[in-house]
Amino acid sequence: MSAPRIAMVAGEASGDLLAGLVLDGLRARWPELQSTGIGGPQMAKRGFQAAWPSDKLAVHGYNMDVFLRLYELINIRKQLRERLLQERPAVFIGVDAPDFNLGLEAALKAQGVPTVHFVCPSIWAWRADRVEKIRRAADHVLCIFPFEPALLAEHGIAATYVGHPLASVIPLNPDRAAARQKLGLDAADDVVAILPGSRQSEIKYLALRFFQAAAQILPARPAIKFVVPAIPSLKERIEAIAAQAGMAGRVQIVAGQSHTVLAACDVTLIASGTATLEAALFKRPMVIAYNMHWLSWKLMQRKQLQPWVGLPNILCADFVVPELLQDAATPQALAKATLQWLDAKGSAKIAALEEKFTALHHTLQRDTAQLATHAIEKIIRA
């Protein structure tokens, strides 16, 4: 079989990384592969020809930025759809970005272009209404969690579990000593990693609570070290919030390095999201928190499909780590839950949690690039 021409769309840096991984597998199978669409620098390194950069799709939620750019996004999708219907690629692969990709995939699939969607939308957590959209859009879904193919099969959607890429990036046995040395921390230090999120809205609703919790931990552990990995563009704002909580000079705020910080810590106070899965893969105890505008919270509650919100709890089907959400996420409660983990250092409780997270790591660790390539090749040959 000659090298196929494929089209891809990846939004944001995370989608660019995932798409780069898929391209590695496809180019190993077909060295002369041609690929085009919307992508970022990681895809470009693999020879991808981007008609538009992936950061064009990097908008979040329902805010003025989205509405101002809605026409532009619709126009880009229309132009790309018309181009791909003329070029007829062997397959279209939509990587995450479901609000953009599912509509595009549906239009292409309706005209006979095979479609694959990589990363199943969280229909098992919040968005059950997307099932029908996925069925109309994708000939095949590549799933990063092991329970998703069976769930999609219930709705007549073909899918393949390809593992979670993070499980291959994060070592099974993280080197805590090396991470602490890199951050200038001593081996004997009690270290709390504070991760209030990577979006402006998360910082707005969580950062002050997290730093106020840290201030309440200090009297019980005066020598404790707090480390915050911050996106460079948010670093100054986070520093100001720490000062507002009376923690100026008591927290170490570093640019990026979230994996180093998670490897170094004893426990993390962390916003619900993908970072909680990273913390689990680093085998770290955590306190998961989330807070948002009260109206958004009411709407989310109505859509919630299971008792857990944090990914480690969802994947373990149990409250293996505490979740403090909305009104429950008070500084007092956050401090208390964090201190309970610190008090348990070296205990059977910590050992049991590490065992659960190690088993989870093994479950998620697969050759994602190869498995994805095999599934995509079947779609191309069908």
Results as ranks from 00 to 15, higher is better:
residue 66 V to Y: 13
residue 109 K to H: 07
residue 356 K to I: 04
residue 221 R to E: 10
residue 341 W to F: 02
residue 205 Y to R: 00
residue 208 L to E: 07
residue 181 Q to A: 13
residue 366 R to F: 00
residue 22 V to K: 04
residue 93 I to D: 02
residue 6 I to G: 09
residue 336 K to S: 12
residue 147 F to Y: 14
residue 197 G to C: 03
residue 102 L to P: 01
residue 206 L to W: 05
residue 53 P to F: 10
residue 378 K to W: 08
residue 367 D to N: 14
residue 216 Q to R: 06
residue 336 K to A: 13
residue 244 Q to A: 10
residue 266 D to F: 03
residue 281 L to Y: 03
residue 330 T to I: 03
residue 126 W to V: 06
residue 231 I to H: 08
residue 160 T to R: 09
residue 354 E to G: 01
residue 318 D to G: 07
residue 223 A to I: 00
residue 199 R to G: 04
residue 74 I to F: 15
residue 293 H to D: 15
residue 106 A to W: 07
residue 309 V to I: 14
residue 115 T to I: 08
residue 362 H to Y: 13
residue 136 R to V: 03
residue 293 H to M: 11
residue 334 L to Q: 02
residue 221 R to N: 08
residue 61 G to K: 10
residue 184 G to L: 00
residue 175 D to G: 04
residue 160 T to V: 09
residue 38 I to G: 04
residue 13 A to N: 04
residue 290 Y to S: 02
residue 44 A to Q: 15
residue 140 H to Q: 14
residue 107 A to Q: 13
residue 311 L to C: 03
residue 1 M to Q: 09
residue 355 E to H: 12
residue 66 V to R: 11
residue 75 N to A: 15
residue 372 A to G: 06
residue 87 E to D: 14
residue 116 V to Y: 03
residue 293 H to N: 15
residue 94 G to T: 04
residue 237 R to K: 12
residue 165 P to D: 10
residue 198 S to W: 01
residue 72 E to P: 08
residue 13 A to P: 01
residue 249 G to C: 05
residue 349 K to V: 10
residue 277 L to M: 14
residue 161 Y to Q: 10
residue 99 D to P: 09
residue 90 A to P: 03
residue 338 T to G: 03
residue 32 E to M: 11
residue 125 A to F: 11
residue 334 L to T: 04
residue 204 K to M: 00
residue 244 Q to H: 07
residue 233 S to T: 12
residue 85 L to Q: 11
residue 324 L to N: 01
residue 302 R to T: 14
residue 362 H to R: 13
residue 129 D to L: 00
residue 66 V to W: 12
residue 169 V to T: 15
residue 122 S to I: 09
residue 28 A to N: 12
residue 143 C to K: 06
residue 165 P to Y: 05
residue 184 G to K: 00
residue 8 M to N: 10
residue 107 A to Y: 05
residue 314 I to Q: 04
residue 139 D to L: 01
residue 340 Q to E: 15
residue 87 E to Q: 14
residue 65 D to P: 00
residue 238 I to P: 04
residue 197 G to M: 02
residue 95 V to L: 05
residue 214 A to T: 09
residue 344 A to N: 02
residue 246 G to W: 04
residue 75 N to T: 15
residue 71 Y to T: 13
residue 99 D to W: 11
residue 217 I to N: 00
residue 236 E to S: 11
residue 202 E to H: 10
residue 125 A to P: 07
residue 209 R to V: 06
residue 112 G to Q: 10
residue 235 K to A: 13
residue 163 G to Q: 09
residue 363 T to P: 01
residue 371 L to K: 13
residue 374 H to F: 00
residue 343 D to E: 14
residue 321 V to C: 01
residue 361 H to G: 05
residue 291 N to Q: 12
residue 214 A to N: 07
residue 13 A to M: 00
residue 162 V to H: 07
residue 45 K to L: 14
residue 358 T to F: 11
residue 344 A to Y: 02
residue 337 A to W: 01
residue 47 G to T: 11
residue 364 L to M: 09
residue 4 P to R: 05
residue 124 W to P: 04
residue 36 T to Q: 13
residue 334 L to I: 12
residue 33 L to T: 12
residue 170 I to D: 02
